[in-house]
Amino acid sequence: MADHYEVLGVSRDATPDEIKKAYRRLARELHPDVNPGAEASERFKSVTHAYDVLSDAKQRQQYDLGDQGGFGGGAQGFGGFGDIFETFFGGAQQTRGPRSRRERGQDALIRVEVGLDEVIFGTHRDIEVDTAVVCQTCNGSCCQPGTSPVTCDICGGSGSIQRAVRSLLGNVMTSSPCGTCRGYGTVIATPCVTCQGQGRVRARRTVPVDIPAGVDTGVRLQMPGSGESGPAGGPNGDLYLEIKVKNHDVFSRNGDDLLATLAVSMTDAILGTTAKIEALDGDVEVEIKPGLQSGEILTVKDRGVSKLRGSGRGDLRVGVQVVTPTKLSTKERDLVQQFAASKKAPAPELSHFQQGLFARLRDKFLG
């Protein structure tokens, strides 16, 4: 059996469109009504068979793997002849009855801004949405109350018009959507005056939304059935909420952890103390041990953001910045000098390069 790709004159990596174009070209050349010779007839059969196999993705895959099977069975085996009709008669398609006026509504996307404190445990919002809703006058029927669609007297309710076309193969019946009813099979003689026969109107409605804990900027929440109503009372589309978390003046976020910087006086860093921090969900006490250095991280477990997937919370991580006083009274200066004399600290000298405080805090915060 000849190779199907060679029969059509295409490469083995040809695209479906290239295979279709090659088949159409050969079909015009070899069709019995155009070229009645016996040799042409045999080639036409081979070309049609090759196209039937290669135009079907599953059959083509089997053929490429070494299965030299035939037409593939069922209605798919007539795919080539369908393309012959498309080639000679302009792509007339068989209709399958009138189409429905009811269609699914479009999806809608709304951006919602929430505070960092709101995403710790989640929050509730009532979102105002300007969208399409079912017309209350006709309840989606598109007709003035008390009336209903009437059968199209042109297509008789089929939604399509049949026409006989003379061709090389004889008379062929073609079908096209009815221009009077636009393929619906019915005509709305008295459209609803409120929605102009659409079955829906624009309106503002309130959608209650529970925003889960742990969401972050860029997260999209899907609310099935909360989008626009479809034409003629069709089902609603979906509503998508894209979250943006506002920046906070004190706290920032790294995954599920909350980050902050705590300014500690020099004396508290030397002697140690307990500090109270106003966290986003209540006060937190942290212990400052004697001798604490700038850049150290104090971690408070389970006081971060609730995890979006899974249970538990992240941590609150506090970076320490020891503040050196710039203005001292005479008495304070004397005390510091006495302290310095008693410690006999070494003279300042160069040491290995160390990056700045905030850079070190960032590196420690981020792991």
Rank of each mutant, 00 (worst) to 15 (best):
L239Q: 08
G230W: 13
N236G: 05
V250E: 10
A164C: 08
I277N: 00
T151N: 11
V172Q: 03
C155E: 04
Q198G: 02
H4R: 07
V207S: 09
V10H: 00
T174A: 13
D130R: 12
S46L: 11
V172S: 02
T180Q: 11
R25L: 04
G356E: 08
K20E: 11
S311L: 11
G140A: 08
G105A: 07
L280D: 07
V7I: 14
Q337D: 10
S46N: 08
L328Q: 12
E103P: 00
A50K: 00
T151V: 15
G237T: 12
V245G: 05
Q338C: 01
P325C: 02
A260M: 13
A269P: 01
G233A: 09
H31A: 02
I270Y: 09
P16K: 07
K289A: 15
V129T: 04
K21E: 07
E29M: 12
T131Q: 03
Y23W: 02
V219H: 06
E287Q: 13
D107R: 10
D210W: 00
E349H: 09
T174R: 08
V134E: 09
L271K: 09
L292Q: 01
A27Q: 04
L116D: 02
Q68E: 14
T299L: 06
H352L: 14
C195N: 11
R253K: 11
T324R: 10
L54F: 01
